[in-house]
């Protein structure tokens, strides 16, 4: 019970951190529409590595919901795009997580997971944008450019995730009371 409460609090805390990054990112103008560094994803990835997929899904979901409510974009096209991207990347992360895990020789590290998340995110956004907002074939011409940006940012956020995980590990943080609870 204590463990559960602590975990809930942690999820809320991580989600809050992700929301802050999400909003900060939203306030920075982007050179290309649809291109954002996606640093809020770093939080999702850190939670995935430390607390598993379910916790990560919670953090990502809360981030999109709370973030859009705070930004006033709930149920707008922006929200649809960001929600579809988040859902797709969480599902993709879940698939890779179940299949390859974290600690086997064949498990990808932060970079691999970041790539999976970023591509799924962008692919879903493009698809939803094409389906709902810009049903024009010209949109697909942008796909390579957008996915290139995704890939570059995935490397950055993968690296950041790795740095953060190492830093948290060195601190030997005491938040792992629920070890083995999954």
């Amino acid at each position: 019970m204590t463990a559960m409460r602590l975990k809930d609090q942690q999820i809320a805390g991580f989600a809050a951190l992700a929301v802050v990054i999400h909003i900060l990112e939203a306030s920075v103008p982007s050179p290309l529409p649809g291109v954002k560094p996606g640093l809020a994803n770093v939080v999702t990835l850190v939670v995935l590595f430390r607390h598993g997929w379910i916790a990560a899904a919670w953090v990502a979901g809360l981030r999109v919901l709370v973030g859009s409510l705070l930004l006033g974009s709930f149920m707008t096209p922006t929200f649809m795009l960001s929600a579809s991207g988040a859902i797709a990347s969480v599902i993709a992360l879940g698939g890779v997580y179940r299949a390859l895990g974290l600690q086997h020789a064949w498990s990808p590290g932060p970079l691999g997971y970041a790539l999976v998340a970023a591509w799924a995110h962008m692919a879903a956004q493009l698809f939803v944008a094409w389906l709902l907002f810009i049903p024009h074939d010209g949109l697909w011409r942008l796909a390579p450019v957008l996915l290139t940006a995704s890939t570059v940012f995935a490397v950055v956020s993968g690296w950041a995730t790795w740095k953060l995980l190492s830093w948290l590990a060195e601190r030997g943080s005491a938040d792992r009371v629920d070890e083995g609870a999954c």
């Binding site: 698939g95 299949a99 390859l100 692919a123 074939d137 697909w140």
Partner: peptide, 23 residues
């Protein structure tokens, strides 16, 4: 064997995306 399924699916997804979008 199971470990092969997800990457394979991922690869299929990417190929699908490629063909699907190549109008």
């Amino acid at each position: 064997m199971k470990k092969v399924i997800m990457p394979a699916l991922l690869a299929v997804f990417l190929v699908w995306l490629m063909f699907f979008s190549n109008r």
